[in-house]
Simulated scan of single mutants.
Amino acid sequence: MTPAATLGTVLLAYLPAAVSPGPNFVLIAHTAAAGTRRAAVAVALGVIAAGGVLAAVAVFGLGGVLARAPWLAAVLRVVCGGYLAWLGVRLWLRAREPEAAAPPQAANDSFAAPEVPNESFATSEKAARLETPNPFRQGVVSNLTNPKAAAFFGSVLTAALPPTEPTAVKAAAVALILLTSTAWHLSVALLFSAPATQRWYARAKPTLNRVVGTILVVLGVILAVTP
């Protein structure tokens, strides 16, 4: 394939995986709703940074192994295609299930310092900073421990991006993933800060899940049967 076609394949493989509901989406959306916009943006940046690391490791590390073992590349292609199809079917089956949500008070406690008397404000503020989870770190940990991210970067990406591609194309693929991830995750952080968006998503969730699920099934089948 031409470099443009290869990058297009990478984008088509990554976009549905990025926008499909998962731990990263839930964390960013919940932070935007229960915390602050600044915290949600920090979580999104953590998810983006971790995704860039995973993409680079997959493209420049695992790709070399696959180049020396073509049979492994074929196995990964079938496995990751099946995974995408399974994820798509799962989205269809769970389209109308409500999202799990943490209690509002508990969520607010994760981002807000407790009220304290004025005379001990400085000491309590310092303690609150130490106890409050770091939003950026939360995003990094969420993506690094996300099974969906591990499956995509460990198999889907390496299958969509042959190890024989030039280094420049691989670097462009990583950059494309970073740009797409930045656009999507920051959009989630900003949009879910608005109550109107929360109400719209609650109504549109079944349709959105079915559309994304269909894309994943079709993409998975194509990836599994195309050499």
Rank of each mutant, 00 (worst) to 15 (best):
P3C: 10
P3I: 09
V10Q: 06
V10D: 08
V10S: 09
P16S: 08
P16C: 08
A17P: 10
A17G: 13
N24S: 13
N24M: 09
F25K: 13
F25M: 11
I28F: 15
A29T: 07
H30I: 06
A32M: 00
G35Y: 01
T36D: 04
T36L: 02
R37D: 05
A39R: 13
A39W: 13
V41N: 05
V43Q: 04
V43R: 07
V47I: 14
V53D: 03
A56G: 01
F60C: 00
G64V: 02
G64S: 02
A67V: 02
A67N: 04
R68K: 03
P70L: 13
P70R: 08
A73R: 00
A73V: 01
A74M: 05
A74K: 05
R77M: 00
R77T: 01
V79E: 13
C80S: 05
G81I: 12
Y83P: 06
A85Y: 13
L91H: 14
L93Y: 11
R94Q: 12
R94K: 15
A95Y: 12
R96S: 07
E97W: 00
A100T: 04
A102M: 14
A102H: 15
A107F: 04
N108K: 03
N108Q: 02
E115P: 03
P117L: 10
T123I: 10
E125R: 08
E125V: 12
A128Q: 03
A128H: 02
R129F: 14
L130W: 13
P135E: 11
R137L: 12
Q138A: 08
L144C: 15
N146F: 03
L157I: 07
L161D: 00
K170P: 02
A173D: 05
A175F: 00
L176M: 01
T182D: 11
T182N: 05
T182Y: 07
A183G: 11
W184F: 14
L186W: 12
S187N: 14
F192P: 06
S193G: 15
A194H: 10
T197K: 12
T197L: 09
R203K: 02
K205S: 02
P206K: 13
P206H: 15
L208Q: 14
N209I: 08
G213N: 05
G213S: 06
T214P: 06
T214L: 05
T214H: 06
G220R: 15
G220C: 15
V221W: 03
L223W: 15
A224G: 07
A224T: 03
V225M: 04
T226F: 06
